[in-house]
Write a protein that binds this DNA or RNA. Structure first.
Length: 411
RNA sequence: GGGCGGGUGGCCGAGUGGUCAAAGGCGUGGGACUGUAAAUCCCAAGCGCGAAAGCGCUACGGUGGUUCGAAUCCACCCCCGCCCA
């Protein structure tokens, strides 16, 4: 397909959209030139199918990928099934465990439907890098390896640190950036997207492309999103993440826990709110003319809307206000049935400890005891006693922590 | 191959024969205050039985041993790090 050239205005427009929330573009001038010259660019995003769930942190780069799709560029998603087996050492201070083919397959199966929530899979060329890396001849690999030096590799911060600290660096880890770079050669990529932690790998790719007589790709590097704790990067293992497949109310609630100083950052990186509007919020927050909570609600609403739509987002917001601001019961109160004879004592009273345990609220009876002695509300009444009268309607609404309610039916 | 140091609860880390279900910190859960923010303060924290006092079981890399009694001593093994080759 031959694309008509873009006008300077169109180029500027695209640059502006692409730059939103981006940490670094290597280099902006090259991107500008490529856009003006080619119009339609080959955009590469390589993903390591090592995790199962996509969260807002990873969504940042995916959304950038989607933007390129919307702008009409050719987008290729590389599922790094081969390189995943090697394990990207980026940002790690120790060797990653290698994945098996089965692990990778399983993860990919998990991934695609989730990816489809953000990017347009029909416009995405999906390739596995094992397609060319598996069959690469050793002589070709040696040729590739000859293009880069140990000193160049050791420029990388994490390698350098490990090297200087006398920590092991396996040879295969040194190879990883080369293979990723080779992907760019095979695709003849114009642009590669990645998190800022991919900076080194992308720089290697640029260098290697030149060695293979290609014009180097432009690196569009997105920031690493901080998680709900506001400090560490969002990741599942740290438990500070918001998954894109989580139910709307859960997403909304989690987003309301984001520290205030990240409200604007989340707006920029995780919503499609217009920059003008975001800047207004920014100004208002700096001047103290808005309650940060309200800005945060706006942010949370927009994130949820992105994944679940307007209606669900509104519901999530209403639910939040109802349950947390007003302290009312949630609309969809979860109900659990528990056998009456299992939780009643011979004298006819109700054993709360047993009930909490049976209802699954407490994972052990000791935990249930702790809950009873700290703070627990049953049907709105604070309870300190372990034993209760059986309510006539045989229903109990248990409040075991802020916003945590469970209805228990005795049967 | 040689020398040295180390493996304790979600993490870090103290503890070197009983008073240790194990200090302290971080993190976590609950509460107060709030905006489920931040800061601050309070409470909790292996599991089972018991209304409770309490009793019992499991736990300090693994296995065995010494001892009335072990996270602590001994033996062997496994794992990790550092230094030398």
């Amino acid at each position: 397909m031959i694309m008509s050239q873009l006008t300077p205005q169109e180029v500027e427009h695209q640059l502006q959209l692409i730059s939103r929330g981006v940490e670094e573009i290597i280099t902006l001038d090259e991107l500008k030139e490529k856009l003006s010259k080619k119009g339609r660019l080959k955009v590469k995003l390589g993903i390591d199918p090592t995790a199962k769930d996509i969260h807002l942190g990873f969504a940042v780069v995916l959304r950038k990928f989607k933007l390129f799709q919307e702008l009409g560029h050719h987008t290729t998603l590389i599922l790094g099934d081969f390189t995943a087996m090697v394990g990207d050492p980026s940002g790690k201070n120790k060797t990653r465990p290698m994945l098996t083919k089965e692990d990778v397959q399983r993860n990919v199966q998990n991934y695609l439907p989730q990816l489809g929530k953000i990017i347009d899979l029909s416009k995405t060329e999906v390739v596995y890098n094992s397609q060319w890396l598996d069959s690469m001849k050793l002589s070709d690999f040696i040729k590739l390896a000859s293009k880069y030096t140990l000193a160049q590799m050791l420029e990388r911060e994490d390698f350098k640190k490990r090297f200087e600290a006398h920590q092991p660096i396996s040879l295969h880890e040194l190879i990883y950036p080369l293979l990723q770079a080779y992907d760019s050669v095979v695709l003849e990529a114009d642009v590669e997207l990645g998190g800022i932690d991919q900076k080194f790998n992308i720089l290697v790719a640029r260098y290697i492309q030149k060695e293979y007589g290609q014009e180097p790709e432009v690196g569009v590097l997105t920031p690493i999103l901080e998680g709900l704790d506001g400090v560490q990067k969002m990741s599942k293992s740290l438990g500070n993440y918001v998954g894109i497949s989580e139910p709307p109310e859960v997403m909304y609630r989690k987003l309301m826990r984001v520290p205030d100083h990240l409200i604007i950052r989340y707006m920029i990186l995780c919503t499609d709110m217009p920059m003008d509007e975001i800047n207004q919020y920014k100004k208002a927050l700096e001047e103290g003319t808005i309650n940060p909570r309200d800005a945060k609600m706006k942010m949370a609403f927009n994130v949820v809307r992105m994944y679940w739509g307007e209606e669900e987002a509104s519901k999530a917001q209403e639910e939040f206000i109802r349950v947390f601001s007003k302290g009312e019961l949630p609309v969809n109160l979860k109900t659990v049935e528990v056998g009456l004879d299992e939780v009643s004592r011979s004298e006819g009273g109700l054993d709360l400890v047993e009930l909490l345990y049976r209802a699954g609220i407490a994972s052990s009876k000791r935990e249930a005891k702790r809950m009873v002695s700290s703070s627990l509300k049953v049907n709105g009444e604070e309870v300190k006693e372990r034993f209760l009268e059986i309510p006539p309607n045989r229903e109990l609404i248990i409040n075991y922590g802020k916003g945590k309610y469970l209805k228990v039916k005795l049967v």
